[in-house]
């Protein structure tokens, strides 16, 4: 099966082969295939980014989402994005540990989980991620979740790939001003404050609402949930089913996508490394390098 064409892998994946789907996604991830190779006009899908700081319970909430949606008969795929080590380029991908829904025999057919490393190249992940989402849609997985650690520019851009963004927060996460600075708060279509069973969750939710109320336009809803006690969970899942786009967020997402395309163009240039060396040694100015990289 290694070496099979994208079109034949796609056909097998549509027919239900998980192995073909997994290999097709690898080919897309490694640049050996593109969804353009097997795109079918008219195939639609929905993608939802679940993002937030480490430790707020993203994986546990996602487990509930997978269980609920697969239980309703909807095929749901999860792309779990984890950072690659900047030193070795390797990655330790541990998102599966907290997921129990894919182990349930009557749900397993409708849940697909794939771990994605951010890899070394700046700017390449969000672009590839968009292709992976499209590939899943084209293979019959109409609903795709993207899990990212909500810290850093690359993660903001990963989230910007999705149609809607849900920001997960936890209790006692410092003052809301800190949250205000985060680019994700500006893009989020919904904010869920998890661990409502713990002290400080409702206070943090109030702080977030406060910070968001300064926003022009309609701020996203801030809801309290608990992945542990399931308090507020059903209501939150119902909201996700038909989440309205926050006014202005499509513009913010478009900006992130454009910025990513620009960055990818620059970092993908053959002379990128040598130009960096030239700037560092003072041989060329940033402006001169831009001339070369942008025109060339």
């Amino acid at each position: 099966m290694r070496g099979a064409t994208p079109a034949s892998l796609h056909a097998e994946a549509v027919a239900g082969s998980r192995r073909a789907l997994a290999r097709l996604l690898s080919d897309v991830e490694d640049g050996r295939a593109s969804p353009m190779d097997f795109d079918t006009p008219g195939v639609a899908g929905r993608s939802l980014a679940i993002t937030g700081p480490p430790g707020v319970g993203k994986s546990c909430l996602i487990d509930h989402m997978l269980r609920a949606w697969a239980g309703e008969g909807r095929r749901t795929a999860l792309l779990a994005v984890d950072p690659s080590s900047s030193l070795s380029g390797g990655a330790l991908l541990g998102d599966r540990i907290r997921l129990t829904s894919p182990d349930e025999p009557d749900l397993a057919d409708r849940i697909y989980v794939r771990s994605i490393a951010t890899r070394r190249a700046t700017g390449s992940v969000p672009t590839v991620l968009g292709d992976l989402v499209r590939t899943l849609h084209l293979c019959g997985w109409e609903q795709v979740l993207i899990e990212t650690v909500g810290a850093g520019q690359s993660e903001v851009r990963c989230a910007a790939v999705a149609d809607r963004i849900v920001l997960i927060e936890g209790p006692a996460r410092g003052d809301a001003v800190q949250a205000e600075k985060a680019g994700l708060l500006e893009l989020a279509d919904l904010v869920l404050v998890n661990k409502s069973d713990l002290d400080g969750a409702s206070r943090h939710a109030a702080e977030l609402r406060d910070a968001l109320s300064l926003d022009a336009g309609r701020p996203p809803e801030v809801r309290l949930v608990s992945a542990k006690t399931k308090e507020g969970l059903e209501e939150a899942l119902a909201l996700l089913n038909d989440l309205p786009e926050r006014p202005g967020s499509s513009r913010a997402r478009a900006r992130e996508r454009l910025a990513n395309a620009v960055e990818r163009h620059l970092t993908g240039h053959d002379d990128y490394e040598s130009m960096l060396a030239d700037i560092a040694s003072g041989r060329r100015s940033v402006e001169e390098v831009m001339e070369v990289l942008w025109r060339g």
Binding site: R18, S84, S85, L87, S88, G89, G90, A91, L92, L93, G94, R96, I97, R98, P102, D103, A108, S115, A117
Partner: peptide
């Protein structure tokens, strides 16, 4: 293996053979 540059997926404890093969 990660430090050698590979992408390592750790499944966690107490997995059944089927869960491991599915992963």
């Amino acid at each position: 293996l990660r430090d050698a540059g590979h992408e390592v997926i750790y499944t966690g404890l107490r997995r059944t053979p089927k869960q491991i093969v599915d992963a």
